[in-house]
Simulated assay, not measured.
Amino acid sequence: MASLQDQLLKAGLVDKKTAKKVGKEKRKQDKVAKKTGESRQSEAQQAAERARAEKVARDRALNAEREAAQRQKAIAAQIKQMIEHNKQPKGEAGKDDIAYHFTFDKKVKKIYVSAAVQDHLVAGRLQIVGDGEQFDLVPRVIAEKIAERNPNTVVAPPENNTSVDEDDPYAGYEIPDDLMW
């Protein structure tokens, strides 16, 4: 099979002088590319390579997003399972329940608990965990494990601030922990 150059010569579209000039120019380019270590690629090949590289980068970013979403789902499932297996009763339903107020997400919320459960909450043996509307009681150890995974689901325990300011005019009046609002 004859080369394209031979075919063009036979068809009369190119003369011998032009064909030799083009061949010589091509050999020069090959020689320069060989010396510099560059491979000769057409613009189409370079564009295809760029598109392939962009696609790989885009695919990596999408995979990273998917993996992050899967991790978040797994963490949420772990938290839900820990709460379900370790939640404590809030107390017997009835009129002897006490409204226990706490702050969650910069809002004051309340749950009704028995007096014994309130004592455990104040002492720090139980902590409140939950999302926007449903709150459950779990032991402090479990709440710490949940806080490692997602600290936004655990309600901070009440602070026992026993430091007294010297200039405080109400220093002699102690506020009880079980103060009802």
Score class of each variant (00 low, 15 high):
K21L: 05
R60N: 09
N63I: 05
V129P: 01
A116E: 15
D30F: 15
K20W: 06
R66L: 13
A64G: 04
E144R: 15
V122M: 13
A53V: 13
S42I: 06
K21A: 10
E25G: 08
K17A: 14
D96T: 08
K17Y: 10
Y173R: 10
E159G: 05
V154N: 00
H101L: 08
D97T: 15
I79G: 00
I142A: 02
A143Q: 01
S3L: 11
K110V: 07
L9W: 01
L8N: 02
L137H: 00
K16C: 03
L62V: 07
V154A: 03
K55V: 03
D165N: 14
R58P: 02
I175D: 07
P169K: 09
K10Y: 11
D96H: 09
F102P: 00
D97R: 14
S114M: 07
R40Y: 04
I142P: 00
A51W: 02
Q78D: 10
G94C: 05
Q118M: 13
D168K: 04
V14D: 01
V122H: 15
A123L: 10
K106P: 04
S114Q: 14
D15Q: 13
V14Y: 01
A147M: 04
D136N: 12
E38H: 12
E67W: 12
F135H: 00
Y170H: 09
S114P: 06
E25F: 12
Q81A: 14
V154L: 02
T153C: 06
D167Q: 10
V129A: 02
K109H: 14
V32F: 09
R125V: 05
L13C: 07
Y112M: 14
I128G: 00
K109Y: 07
E174S: 08
A44H: 11
H120T: 10
D6P: 02
R60Q: 12
E144C: 05
D6Y: 12
I79K: 03
G37M: 06
A53I: 10
A143V: 06
A48G: 11
M82D: 00
S114F: 11
P169S: 04
H85K: 11
I142D: 01
Y170K: 12
T18N: 05
H85L: 12
T18P: 00
G91T: 02
Q81E: 14
I75L: 05
E49N: 11
L137Q: 00
Y100A: 03
E43T: 08
Q127W: 01
K95T: 06
K73E: 14
I75N: 04
K145P: 04
T162R: 15
A93E: 12
V14I: 07
P151L: 07
E174N: 07
K16P: 04
T36V: 14
E144H: 05
V138F: 02
Q41M: 13
G91E: 02
Y112R: 15
D131C: 08
I75C: 03
L121C: 06
A74V: 03
P176H: 04
T18I: 06
V164H: 08
A11G: 11
G37H: 06
A57R: 12
E133A: 06
A171L: 13
E92Y: 13
E38N: 10
A115Q: 13
K106G: 05
I128Y: 01
I175K: 13
K28T: 07
E67R: 15
D30K: 09
Y170D: 10
R52F: 09
K10D: 10
N63Q: 15
K16W: 08
T18F: 08
D168L: 07
V32G: 02
D168A: 04
K107S: 07
